[in-house]
Design a protein around this nucleic acid. Structure first.
Length: 510
DNA sequence: CAAAGCGCATC
DNA sequence: GTCGGAT
DNA sequence: ATCCGACGATGCGCTTTG
């Protein structure tokens, strides 16, 4: 199949807003794809490369290339080139990769270049990724989307399952089962503003501590233990403690879901950044382990022995977990069978969890199944929110649907010297109307515009919500906001009324 | 040989 | 990771 | 109820640059 066809459909998908129409466009192409190329086509149109990230970023993609006049590239040609890109490493690799990329782009028409650049950069921006492509596959193969979705969650790969179902039909889905040793898309949590709100939404539930670490899925089959991240990358070698603990458990075969954290000598959890550093260290795991040992805390079990537990309710899965994992390797939890009667108890659990230094709680419906790969409304996370009044120091021009609007705000707190210390940026929480308003308001305050960033007189105050502070080597206060978002503009306030660095730091002093 | 730049992963 | 918009 | 895309800070490892 020609890349031109894929690029054309991608463009059409991008230009239609209705999801049903996107699905139909994708289904048409998937049905046309030769069986041996279907996986590739589906992968590209769901915005992924089978090789994963190819080591090509905005910098490398910046190079210009004279487009070809006529489309000759096939998807197999692209796959070959991407394989080369991904395999290129060592001294001189940047230049070699650049040449391979130039060669590929040189064989592509202008339209194909647009698609290739977006695909390689990881931002297809066609309003359709995995989920919509999955609908397209289901339509093309004539199978129920729900059946296909379940198979993909268990298998972990849409292109693989899709190729099989297009070739063999619905029966291909029957052979996909949960297997120990093959990672499953983890279930995700929605958000609630308060414990009371979560209790009200869920009824009988479990309130669990939410640990601020790295999500892990641990598979054991006899002596073979593997640890996977949330994105299903295998990180077993980086976390020997986790593998050791899994081997020590009284079960030969299981799949556990949990979070890896570190504990200070007093038992309190170490900051997320330290865990990220530890889990990210690959070259000298021994040294990293000595510096910061980690512990897994499990909160779910997806399989044990020959039994698949995904469809069992939380209460039964937790009983299985308790039978397998000792208490000190499990998350603390409170069962709330009667939310009406136990609200105070739940609130106290939340307060105690925060006193222990954890991130918040996750509230789970006791009768819900494990919805692999979904952001279930049966799991709701609750975290404390902090707010500040900060001053806009600059704003960046937006992209995509925010083109022409000032979007990303540089946020400053007042210093003792009467200047402003930047604490981070945010573009979140802004409605279209707020974007329009701030674009005009900031234009009026502009002191410079380099086409990327507009610097402004520090006069506009914004109310910012954030989750906490993190150590920063980039920002002058030595600290940055985590997950900052705009609550509202405060044109009624003057910059002199904004919060100071000192009060920000004081609010988080332990 | 150290610093900077880049890409990619976590949240 | 959070959030708003669209379906 | 879902999905998507608008982009955040940070740390590691690799490669290039000074």
């Amino acid at each position: 199949m020609l890349l031109a066809e894929v690029a054309r459909v991608s463009k059409e998908v991008a230009e239609t807003s209705a999801r049903s129409r996107k699905t139909a466009l994708l289904a048409g192409l998937f049905a046309d794809a030769p069986p041996e190329e279907a996986g590739l086509v589906i992968s590209y149109l769901s915005g992924r490369l089978p090789q994963g990230r190819p080591g090509i970023g905005w910098r490398t993609l910046g190079q210009e290339a004279e487009p070809a006049d006529a489309p000759t590239l096939t998807v197999l040609d692209v796959d070959t080139a991407v394989g080369e890109l991904a395999a290129t490493r060592g001294a001189g690799s940047v230049e070699r990769r650049g040449r391979v990329l130039a060669g590929l782009l040189g064989r592509a028409t202008a339209a194909e270049q647009v698609f290739l650049r977006s695909l390689l950069s990881g931002e297809v921006r066609q309003g359709a990724l995995d989920a919509v492509a999955l609908e397209g596959v289901a339509a093309a193969a004539g199978v129920p989307a729900a059946d296909l979705r379940r198979a993909v969650m268990l298998d972990g790969s849409l292109p693989r399952v899709a190729a099989a179902v297009l070739a063999e039909g619905a029966q291909a889905l029957c052979t996909v089962t949960l297997r120990v040793g093959r990672p499953v898309q983890p279930m995700l949590a929605g958000t609630a503003k308060s414990v009371a709100e979560a209790l009200g939404a869920l009824g009988p539930c479990a309130v669990e501590e939410k640990l601020d670490g790295i999500r892990v899925q641990v598979h054991r089959d006899g002596a073979d233990v593997r640890v996977y991240t949330r994105s299903l990358d295998e990180i077993t070698e980086r976390l020997p403690e986790v593998a050791e603990l899994a081997r020590s458990l009284p079960g030969e075969r299981f799949i556990l879901d949990g979070e890896v954290i570190g504990r200070a000598p007093d038992g309190r959890p170490v900051p997320f950044q330290e865990i990220a550093s530890r889990v990210g260290s690959r070259v000298d795991v021994g040294a990293a382990r000595r510096t910061l040992p980690v512990v897994p805390c499990f909160f779910d079990v997806l399989a044990v022995g020959e039994d698949v537990l995904l469809d069992l309710p939380v209460r039964e899965r937790y009983a299985a977990l308790a039978a397998l994992v000792p208490e000190d390797a499990r998350v603390r939890r409170l069962a709330v069978e009667d939310p009406g009667e136990q609200e105070a108890e739940a609130e106290e659990f939340w307060a105690e969890t925060l006193r222990r230094g954890h991130e918040g709680v996750v509230v789970k419906g006791l009768d819900s199944a494990y919805a692999a790969g979904r952001r279930g409304r049966h799991w709701l996370k609750v975290k404390p929110v902090h707010t500040l009044d900060l001053v806009v120091l600059a704003a960046e021009w937006g992209h995509g649907r925010r083109t022409g609007l000032l979007s990303n705000l540089h946020l400053g707190a007042r210093t003792a010297e009467g200047t402003y210390a930047m604490l981070g940026k945010t573009f979140k929480g802004l409605t279209d109307q707020m974007l329009r308003w701030q674009t005009e308001a900031l234009r009026a305050l502009a002191t410079s515009d380099d086409g990327f960033t507009v610097r402004v007189r520090p006069e506009l105050v914004v109310e910012i919500a954030y989750d906490g502070l993190q150590r920063s080597s980039r920002y002058p206060a030595g600290v940055a906001l985590r997950f900052a978002r705009v609550l509202r503009h405060r044109p009624d306030k003057t910059a002199a009324e904004a919060d100071t660095v000192a009060t920000v730091l004081a609010a988080h002093a332990a």
